[in-house]
């Protein structure tokens, strides 16, 4: 039976190192299967988070051969197996153990986004009317499974550790989903500019490339928000036009 070598990061926030494991592989196997096999037969104490094994819960994010990916959606047949496959935890978040990182920062940041504030109901029975095409635009953002791979790859967080100043692509997607919603009346542009650091994003599109849900994060969420921020703060003509309207 064919085998493949895996080089897995073992350790905690203080120290750690790569350890090699050899696993028998079969057709259709994904990286998470190999990790489970290692956990079952060679390293019972290997820390790994997973849940659905179907690319829907967003738990099994890791870096496979340096690429932020879901372990359950990465087939071994997609990887070159002549060399060991490296599996590391996400780099932008504190390490708990082995492949498990503490992603709770994302949820704390998400709470700071101003919540949905709908306009008064359209009908006497307290309901609203929306056109499907208007909701379609924000529907894309609702596909997010909160795997935080986009946060992990974003150099503002990963390299510069500006977690205090920048909310990251996932939370920008969340903000766009609310801000562009046809019923919403809240204004989040001041927060985006001042405390949420949208100006830190330099549109290098790494977030879009890693998103397993193929959300066009940069084109459809971040750039439209940046343009709205320009309207509000940087474009004298738009501001003048608003005064006279």
């Amino acid at each position: 039976m064919a085998t493949a070598k895996f080089r897995i990061w073992r350790g905690d926030a203080r120290s750690g190192k790569f350890q090699d494991y050899t696993v028998e592989i079969s057709a259709g196997m994904v990286v998470l299967d190999a990790v489970h096999e290692i956990q079952a037969t060679q390293a019972q104490d290997l820390g790994v988070r997973w849940n659905c094994k179907a690319g829907k819960c967003g738990s099994c994010s890791a870096e496979i051969n340096g690429h932020p990916r879901l372990m359950c959606m990465t087939r071994l047949s997609q990887l070159p197996l002549e060399q060991p496959v490296t599996i590391e935890p996400m780099r932008a978040f504190p390490l708990v153990k082995d492949l498990v990182t503490d992603v709770s920062w994302n949820f704390r940041v998400k709470e700071k986004i101003r919540p949905f504030r709908p306009r008064p109901a359209d009908a006497a029975d307290g309901t609203w009317r929306m056109d499907q095409s208007d909701v379609d635009r924000v529907q894309e953002f609702r596909k997010c499974i909160e795997c935080f791979l986009c946060q992990d790859v974003c150099h503002v967080l990963r390299e510069h550790h500006l977690h205090e100043q920048f909310i990251g692509p996932r939370i920008l997607v969340h903000s766009a989903a609310l801000e562009m919603h046809p019923l919403d009346t809240e204004n989040r542009l001041g927060d985006l500019k001042r405390t949420q650091g949208i100006g830190y994003c330099n549109i290098t599109k790494c977030c879009t490339k890693v998103c397993p849900e193929e959300i066009k994060i940069t084109d459809n969420a971040i750039i439209p928000l940046k343009e709205r921020v320009v309207d509000e703060f940087y474009d004298p003509l738009t501001r003048l036009f608003r005064v006279f309207r």
Partner: peptide
Amino acid sequence: ADPPSCAVGEPPRSYRGERS
């Protein structure tokens, strides 16, 4: 090289992005 490519290390320096 800001970043050189996705998930590739940058030269050490401070970063201000497009904010200032």
